[in-house]
Write a protein that binds this DNA or RNA. Structure first.
Lengths: 363, 363
DNA sequence: TTGTAAGCGTTATCAT
DNA sequence: ATGATAACGCTTACAA
C-alpha cells in the first residue's frame, strides 16, 4: 500500500532520494540514508516492479512454456530455471502447451500481456506460434528454445544432442547382438516432427540394420500410444528383440504392456529408454536409460536470459557487442549419458513369443 | 511496441474509443468499431496488463508457492491450478519454498514485487512467513493455503482431510490383522508439524494399538530419511509388520530399503502409502495407496481465487457480501480414496526377519 | 456515441 | 548530495 512517495514524505526527503537509499546508498549522506531506511522499515515499503518496468526500464518477469509440467523432465527443468532466475531477482511465469503450437500461441499471448522480458519455450509442434515468437523477438523479448527447436527458427536454443543420444542407444543395443530393434514412435513431418524418431532409422542404417515397415508407427509420444504400440509390436510374427522408448513417458506405457504380456526383461525383450525417471531404478530389473543433464540445461537457459537482459540494460548506447560469448553461441547442445542397469541383454536365439503363446499368457 | 494511443491515432479516434472497441464493442458505432479493429490488427496491438493494473484496476497475475515442483503431487496441483486460472485470463507466477518458511518469505516478497492479486501457497514449516502473509492479506492480496495449514492462521484453505485419511489407512492395516504398524515420520511441533504424523498415534490408540517408542523417529519427509528409517525399523528385534508411508516420496525411500533387505511385499512386510504415483502401479506387487483428489483440489483453489477477485472487482460499493458461498466456506476439505492393489496382506505369525538374517541377506 | 484529462508508482533527466 | 518533473500505457470519471 505504501509507495516510495510515502516513504519520502515520512523521511522528509524527495522520492528520488528515498529511492537512492535503496539502489545507490553510497551516494547518500549517512544521516539521510538512516532516516529513509527507518521510514522504509516503518511502512514496510516494497517496490512495485511493474511501475518501474512501465517507465521503460528492466522487466523483472520471465516466461516459461513447457510441454507438460507433470512430466518429470519438465518439472526438473522448471525447477532449475526457476531457481536460477529467482536468485537473480526474476519472477517466473509458467504455462503449458501440451506440445501444440495452437496452445503455445495462446499462452504466449497471455504472458506478453504481462510484458515478460524474456521467454524460455519448448515450442509446440506446428506452425501456429512461430510467427508470434518472431514478433515477440522483434519487440525485444529475448527468446530461448529448449528441448525442441522449430525448424529454421532464428532463436537461441538449449538442446540435448538428440541425434547423438539416439545413436548411442542404438549402438548399445547393437553391441549386445540386437538386430530387430523398434523405436516407440516414428518420424512424421507433421504429427511427430522431432529429432529422435527422425534419427533412429539413420542410426540403424549406419550399423547396417534396417527398420521393417511393420515396426513403424506414427503417433504422439504419450503413455497410451506407447502401450498400444508395444502390444502391437510384440505380437508381430517377428517381434523386435529390443525396444527403444524415446521418452520416459513412453517407457511407462511400454513397461505396462510388457508386464501384461508376461514378458521377462531382459530375457524375452530388452528395454532401453530416454530419460532417467525415479521408478526406473525401482523396478526389477532396473531400466537402462539415457539421462539428460536437466539441471545443467535449465541453468544454461536461465543464464542465457539473465546475461541477455543484463547486456540489454547495460549497453544501450554501446552498439558493438563486447565479446559476448552467448551471442556467438546461440545454440547450446548438451550430451546425454547412458546408464546401464540390466534391462538390456543379448537376444535369445529363437523368438520366445508367438502370436498364440502371447494370447494364452495374457490372462 | 504499439499502444492504445497508436491504435487510436491510426483509427482516427480517441484512446477511450479505441479501448471500448475491445472491451465494450456494443457501445460503439459499427463503422467506428470497424476502423478500430482494423487498426488493432494492423498494429498487432496487445494490451499491457501491468499498466491497467497500476491504474488501480484488476491485477491479472496470481502467485503459487509449492513445496517442490518435482514432487508429482505439486506438479499435478500446479497443472490444475494453472489451467483453471489461465482459462480465466490470469497468469501464474510459480515458485518453491522447499517446505521452509524462510524461503517462503523470500519467494512471497519477490512475487509481491509483481503485485500479484492473489497467492495460493503451501506454507513452509515455521513462523517466518506467517506475519508477511497476514500483511499481504491486509494489503488486499487474496490468500489460499493448500495441503498444509499454518496453525490458527486466518486464511482460506483447500485441504485434504489428512486425519481421516490416516485413520482410513490404519484401519485398512488393522483389519488385515496388523498390530505392529510404523509410520514413516513422527510428529514434532517444530521439525515436522504436520497433521498426518500427528494423527497417526491417535488413530492407533483408537483401535487399541500403541506405537512403541522405537518405532518413532522425527525427521523431514524426504526420500533419504524414509530410506534410513525403513532400514532401522526392519532391523529392530521386533520389526513392524506394516509400514505406512506418509507421502509418495517416502514410499520411494521405503521401497528401496525393502528391496535391499530382500524383503518380499506383502509376505514379509505390508506397505501402504499416501499419494498414488505412477510407479506404484508399475512395480510388483503394485502398492496400496491413499489417493488425493489433486485435480479437484487444484480447481477448487483456483476457483476460490477467481471468485474472490471477481467479487472484489464487482462489489466495490456493495458493502454486504451477497450470499457468497465461499466466504462462508473458507476451509474446504477433500477426502482421499484408498486404492487396494496387493501390497498389504495379513502378517505372518512369526517374525521372518531377525537381525542376523537381515545382515546376511544384505549382500 | 465519442473525447479529455488526471493519476497509478516508478525512474531518467535535468536542475540545484 | 538532493530535488522537481515528465513520461511509461492504461483506466475512469466527467464532459460534450
Amino acid at each position: 500500500m505504501a509507495n516510495i512517495l510515502d516513504v519520502a514524505k515520512l523521511a522528509g526527503v524527495s522520492s528520488t532520494t528515498a529511492k537512492r537509499a535503496l539502489r545507490t546508498p553510497e551516494l547518500l549522506h549517512p544521516a539521510t540514508l538512516e532516516k529513509v531506511m527507518r521510514a522504509v522499515e516503518a511502512l514496510h515499503y516494497e517496490a512495485d516492479q511493474r511501475a518501474g518496468a512501465l517507465r521503460g526500464g528492466q522487466g523483472r518477469a520471465v516466461g516459461l512454456v513447457v510441454g507438460s509440467i507433470v512430466e518429470p523432465f519438465f518439472a526438473e527443468l522448471a525447477r532449475a530455471i526457476g531457481q536460477t532466475l529467482r536468485k537473480a531477482g526474476y519472477s517466473l511465469i509458467i504455462s503449458e502447451n501440451e506440445y501444440s503450437s495452437e496452445l503455445d500461441l495462446q499462452e504466449l499471448r497471455l504472458m506478453y500481456g504481462q510484458r515478460i522480458s524474456a521467454v524460455i519455450v519448448r515450442p509446440g509442434y506446428g506452425e501456429h506460434s512461430r510467427e508470434y515468437l518472431m514478433r515477440l523477438q522483434e519487440r525485444g523479448v529475448f527468446i530461448v528454445e529448449v528441448d525442441y527447436h522449430l525448424p529454421e527458427a532464428p532463436f537461441n536454443a538449449v538442446m540435448l544432442n538428440h541425434a547423438e543420444c539416439v545413436r548411442m542407444g542404438v549402438r548399445h543395443l547393437h553391441s549386445m547382438g540386437h538386430h530387430r530393434i523398434a523405436a516407440l514412435g516414428t518420424y512424421d513431418p507433421i504429427l511427430h516432427p522431432e529429432l529422435r524418431s527422425k534419427t533412429f532409422p539413420h542410426a540403424m542404417t549406419e550399423l547396417g540394420l534396417n527398420v521393417p515397415i511393420e515396426y513403424q508407427s506414427v503417433g504422439l509420444l504419450n503413455e497410451q500410444t506407447a502401450y498400444i504400440t508395444t502390444h502391437r509390436l510384440m505380437l508381430l510374427p517377428e517381434p523386435p528383440t529390443a525396444l527403444f522408448a524415446l521418452s520416459g513417458t513412453q517407457a511407462v506405457g511400454a513397461y505396462h504392456a510388457l508386464r501384461e504380456l508376461n514378458l521377462i526383461i531382459p530375457r524375452d525383450i530388452s528395454l532401453l529408454t530416454f530419460d532417467n525417471y525415479p521408478w526406473m531404478g525401482l523396478v526389477n530389473p532396473p531400466i537402462d536409460s539415457i539421462e539428460q543433464p536437466i539441471q545443467a540445461m535449465g541453468e544454461a537457459a536461465a543464464k542465457m536470459v539473465i546475461d541477455a537482459l543484463d547486456r540489454k540494460y547495460t549497453s544501450n548506447a554501446d552498439e558493438a557487442n563486447t565479446s559476448s560469448e552467448l551471442l556467438l553461441n546461440p545454440y547450446l547442445e548438451f550430451s546425454g549419458r547412458l546408464i546401464v542397469r540390466g534391462s538390456c541383454a543379448a537376444p535369445q536365439k529363437e523368438p520366445i513369443l508367438t502370436r498364440s503363446s502371447a494370447h494364452r499368457s495374457k490372462s
